[in-house]
């Protein structure tokens, strides 16, 4: 079964490699599983997802990330993506002048063998079916990527890309941020529709709210750069009721014990 294995990972900003943000994080995700990573702001959740995707602003100072047992750390971001990783951005870039259709086409083409041409008719048919599922107007395809999109449109566009590219592992960074309840529901339905034996999900979120719609198999609490508590979906509810201070107090108590 495919797995994404994060082993004792340390991540820092490339500009300040001696100040780790992620500090020894270990986690294994298998396909078919949804892992929620929760935690207060500034604890390294986004850093973790960006570093795994290969963002150049971050440097992995020690540890490893393995996709199906093979380290991806020497791979370029585009190679990691083609190997099956997908990062759903918290703040997707706006790219004026590149239409959604051309952008996705280039991404789909990148996954074909050298010299193989994309079947345009099949591509559009596939694209439109995914757009219908996510209740995205077809006129969207001619709009520039994320340019002038509302928060909800941007996130739906991320899910559309995920649906088109069919990754093995999705790293979803605060996909719920900036969404009203209707948009949240559409996005969650989109993810739920993709959920299954072929997909593993790391769902980064600050709030329990999203987990009402995408019920996780595992919940991990991240604090100060590492996972400090793991459990099932009831952990998320507990966090919602008691707040993150509860975890901090537990940690402090454990440290003095």
């Amino acid at each position: 079964m495919p797995s994404l294995e994060i082993r004792d990972l340390f991540v820092a900003l490339a500009a300040t490699p001696d100040k780790p943000i992620v500090k020894g994080l270990t986690l294994t995700i298998r396909t078919g599983e949804v892992h929620a990573i929760m935690g207060p702001n500034g604890t390294g959740k986004s850093t973790l997802s960006k570093a795994i995707a290969g963002h150049p602003d971050y440097v992995i100072t020690s540890g490893d990330v393995l996709l199906d047992g093979k380290s991806i750390l020497e791979m370029e971001p585009d190679q990691r993506a083609r190997a099956g990783l997908f990062l759903a951005f918290q703040y997707p870039s706006e790219i004026p002048g590149v239409s959604i259709a051309n952008f996705l086409r280039a991404a789909v083409q990148a996954r074909l063998a050298e010299g193989e041409d994309l079947d345009a008719t099949a591509y559009y048919k596939h694209l439109y079916s995914k757009m219908d599922l996510l209740k995205i107007d077809r006129k969207f395809t001619s709009r520039s990527v994320n340019e002038g999109f509302s928060g909800g449109e941007k996130k739906r566009c991320e899910i559309l890309q995920m649906a088109m590219l069919e990754p093995t592992f999705a790293l979803m960074d605060e996909t719920d941020s900036g969404l009203d309840i209707d948009a949240l529901r559409i996005v969650a339905e989109g993810v739920e529709a993709m959920r299954g034996e072929k997909l593993g999900v790391m769902l980064i979120t600050h709030y329990q709210r999203l987990l009402d719609y995408i019920v996780p198999d595992f919940v991990h609490v991240m604090y100060d750069g590492r996972i400090v508590k793991s459990g099932d979906k009831t952990l998320a509810l507990e966090l919602e009721a008691k707040g993150y201070d509860w975890v901090k107090q537990e940690l402090a108590a454990a440290a003095t014990a």
């Binding site: 290969g54 951005f89 051309n102 952008f103 991404a107």
Partner: peptide, 16 residues
């Protein structure tokens, strides 16, 4: 980075 994170190779990302 956004383009590359979708699997698009650097030279193609620059072309776009």
């Amino acid at each position: 980075f956004y383009l590359q994170a979708r699997g698009i190779a650097p030279v193609e990302a620059r072309r776009l």
